[in-house]
Design a protein around this nucleic acid. Structure first.
Ligand SMILES: [Mn+2]
Ligand SMILES: [Mn+2]
Ligand SMILES: [Zn+2]
Ligand SMILES: [Zn+2]
Lengths: 144, 144
DNA sequence: TTTTTAAATGCAACTATATTGCATTTATAT
DNA sequence: ATATAAATGCAATATAGTTGCATTTAAAAA
């Protein structure tokens, strides 16, 4: 509902995706949240007008195009967040730390926190990193 | 089938768990593998003699007692590995890096690779860390 | 503007993982 | 040998995700 509508429409076109209701709705929801958004939450707020399968397909297409990235939280639930901008269909650049609050269950993209380097045993070839810190988020810590 | 049977029986007793078939079977399977073991794999090799629900309950009990630890791989699938020894019902100490091979899908405990420290934004309280590196494991890299 | 068409959606069916309640069985203590 | 709490089996249920196919629609072409 905010007026990023036009920006989102261009984003879809740029990626060769048609400008459809479900897609714009997903972009709108994701961009108006301060944390990553879980699939169940998306399914719930999108209501029954959009089919579950469509939602899954929208998310899959966005991920493939580098528009959003997926983060599995501590329970294996899929959470999605808009990519930082330099991602595309060929490569994602979202290797920042994610924080999963044990209280409110939110998943935060700590966009400024890079995953530190470490050594792996000989022979192993690392291609991707995924670091999830869990604990209490700033918002929940305040409520005391 | 190996003769850790006696050791496992003591382990169960020590944790106040009865010495039952399904439990010994799970311990036997997990201890004879070089990587973590997925729930689906366990379910498959345990066969139909043991009910699925029993397997889930065995895994849950072991995790709570600090006998095994759970690692979710890149697809959200639960994988289990025997703990290193210093874990108990009160606290787990398995904060090593895990490696998920994109080829053979195995999840390795890199027991000697600690998760390096990093800073989080003010207000966030980190309690647990989970770092999964993915790529090609040593065994798969050899087959070329 | 109308027509065309590939892309996107909806719907139904299905698979897989995981949990809960309750009846029955069994490992262990007495 | 018996008692009992713990463990298991079974049926039902919940939730996440996928696939095939018919229908609709956004966008390009005429
Ligand atoms: Mn992120
Ligand atoms: Mn491990
Ligand atoms: Zn929180
Ligand atoms: Zn491998």
């Amino acid at each position: 509902m905010t007026d990023n509508s036009n920006h989102f429409e261009k984003l879809l076109i740029k990626n060769g995706l048609k400008r459809t209701g479900p897609r714009l709705q997903v972009l709108d929801i994701l961009s108006n949240r301060d944390s990553a958004t879980s699939q169940p939450y998306l399914e719930q707020v999108m209501g029954t007008e959009v089919d579950r399968v469509t939602l899954y397909r929208v998310l899959k297409a966005f991920e493939e195009k580098g528009i959003i990235h997926k983060v599995l939280d501590n329970h294996g639930t899929a959470n999605y967040a808009i990519c930082s901008g330099n991602c595309n269909a060929n490569e994602h650049h979202d290797e920042h730390v994610h924080f999963n609050c044990n209280n409110c269950k939110k998943v935060y993209c700590l966009a400024n926190v890079q995953i530190p380097a470490f050594k792996v045993p000989a022979g192993f070839k690392v291609e991707n990193l995924n670091l999830i810190a869990s604990g209490i988020c700033a918002a929940c810590a305040d409520k005391d």
